[in-house]
Design a protein around this nucleic acid. Structure first.
Lengths: 342, 342
DNA sequence: TCTGCCGGTGTGAGCGTTAACACTGCCACC
DNA sequence: GGTGGCAGTGTTAACGCTCACACCGGCAGA
């Protein structure tokens, strides 16, 4: 009696297994497996019968058993930091879609904070799940550091993580983007361009600073110190407020659109008109940029393309079984609207 | 010879298994399992030895084998639609963090389009992965329809999906929120309030319309037809452009902040000052809202709380083994800034 | 006619883990 | 001084699947 009750306990809600389907279709479990895996040598009549049986029982294969025996989880890991930001969230979205098309599931793990331990922890959680590869959408230095410690046998791609030792990477060409923005302002006749950057511990921030600074040097314009924010509108607002009182400030290049938005507000409060008195350029081209007051000139980056490319790079590595050394940089594009003028 | 080479083939990169750890620590694999699962009856000295061995081999448990035998995947599924929107993306973020704290992994599947099939497909992919429960962050009707078809033995929570037949749900109280916004405008002395809504196939849209309409009726104000957008700034801009030319329009309640942002621009272009001539209220309180020109009065909802609550509800169901009938509604809060006045 | 091969199918083993149960000392209790 | 129990450990059998191989009949080529 106990034996009976107990024997039935294990298999929870009597979920059908391959053997049940096989029995119903009058074949062996192996034939069911072949149908499931689209093996060619199954008579089409048999296949039909099996498919009908699967349908009838609402059978679905046990992915754990499959993973156990094939040693493949068909799952990719995504490390994110703050998906509230527009860039990362669009990128994640694109990755998920591409992964599904490539036949992979996507598991996400977010890093709690900026430090390396937190990123390493996220990576570990993913590894525990036996993901076949990892993409980090966490473009700060700590992520790169954590990535560098991951054993070489697990495929990896970092997005916007900066050039480094053996970690394949995908990003937009921030230097070129910042140069375009700066050049645009200089060409408009501004004596120099001020810069409100993102947090310095983001490689993208430093690259944009480099692009900005290099351009300024090329044209022999004076270089004001960089003010750095945290990507938020608030920080852009605060930084711009300091700049607004200085009549020499006539052009501001912001590290992203949110900060530019904050800057726009600060300038407005200070009574300095954009673009007649001060020009502002952002970075990213968020969907709202075209509807700000005034519409924001900005550097557009294609987050979806970034996501797709990173996935492609990852899948390539999984197939090849070797870690690529590849770096991919996408060219951004300047979108001129009405926040810049002379 | 062949036998030998072949025997080694299967286990890919010689990843250590429990038995390897056991051997190194001089115990049985079962003891290793006990250490891993924090079983109390292991001598601490033994535990130490095992832990050292695990460390030395960089052992990590095979989650597929574990899932196979325990019949638990420790994974939750997330169905998303467009994580580019601020609400969903913040919610997803909060869910992931809460899930991790509760000891679950998170797997995401996005619905490609608005139709039910697409959502059903995402749910199916998740079920194939044997997730223990599913949360949908896809607040449109099609999601509810797809959710309603999911067998009752799999725990479920829909976010913002509207009241319905046996699907546990979490959302903000949209009716109350819209009522607050409308009341605020009426109290300011506006004869009536116009509404630019989201897409009608989103329950939240209809609830907000209801809250707006009910309030108008309560005070006996005339009801203008609803203009509906698609949540984007562009759509808000276009809708508001139609309204801007009508001098009777003095107050606009927008279905979200992005559309309000677009409306602000349209009004500016039409030469109608906000707030002296026209008042505008948004919904969501995105981080940028406080930095718009003028700072936007809006209805704040706590997306993170929504995410946490949905997870809690889901875990509860998993533990209990029954689907709850619970609905949770969170009260929103009106944040008055400078886009409203008399 | 026999051999060989190939399409179509079944059989058995094994993936790495946990659960159940068995076993060994040792201590407490009557 | 037996009996019981319990902490600490080992042994064995699943879990549901895929892989390798065996098998069977038929058809082509010798």
């Amino acid at each position: 009696m106990t034996g009976l009750a107990h024997g039935g306990e294990r298999r929870a809600r009597g979920k059908p297994v391959m053997m049940d389907v096989a029995r119903l279709a009058g074949v062996s479990h192996q034939t069911v497996s072949r149908v499931l895996n689209e093996h060619p040598s199954v008579r089409s009549e048999t296949r039909e019968r099996v498919l009908r049986a699967m349908e009838e029982l609402d059978y679905r294969r046990n992915s754990a058993a499959r993973a156990l025996v094939t040693n493949r989880s068909h799952t990719l890991g995504l490390v994110t930091f703050d998906t509230t930001l527009v860039g990362p969230s669009s990128t994640v979205y694109a990755i998920e879609r591409a992964a599904r098309d490539a036949g992979y599931f996507v598991s996400v793990a977010s890093a709690r904070s900026l430090d390396e331990g937190s990123v390493a922890n996220a990576i570990n959680r993913l590894r525990e799940q036996a993901v076949e590869g990892i993409i980090t959408v966490a473009p700060m230095d700590s992520a790169l550091a954590a990535l560098a410690r991951v054993p070489a046998d697990i495929p990896l791609v970092g997005i916007g993580v900066g050039e480094a030792m053996g970690v394949p990477m995908v990003s937009v060409d921030n230097i070129a983007g910042a140069a375009m923005a700066t050049k645009h302002l200089v060409d408009l006749g501004h004596a120099t361009v001020h810069h409100i950057s993102g947090p310095p511990e983001w490689p993208e921030t430093r690259e944009r600073v480099t692009g900005w600074r290099t351009t300024l040097r090329q044209v022999g314009a004076p270089e004001a110190p960089v003010l750095s924010g945290d990507w938020s509108s608030r920080s852009g607002y605060e930084a711009a407020r300091m700049l607004a009182s200085d009549p020499d400030v006539t052009a501001i290049f912001c590290g992203n659109d949110q900060m530019a938005l904050g800057a726009l507000r600060a300038l407005h409060e200070a009574g300095r008109d954009v673009p007649t008195e001060v020009s502002v350029v952002g970075f990213d081209d968020i969907p709202e940029a075209a509807y700000l007051l005034p519409p924001l000139t900005t550097v557009q980056q294609d987050f979806a393309a970034l996501g797709r490319a990173s996935l492609e790079l990852l899948v390539e590595q999984i197939m090849a079984g070797v870690r690529t050394q590849q770096h991919m940089r996408f060219p951004p594009e300047l979108v001129v609207r009405e926040s810049t003028g002379r």
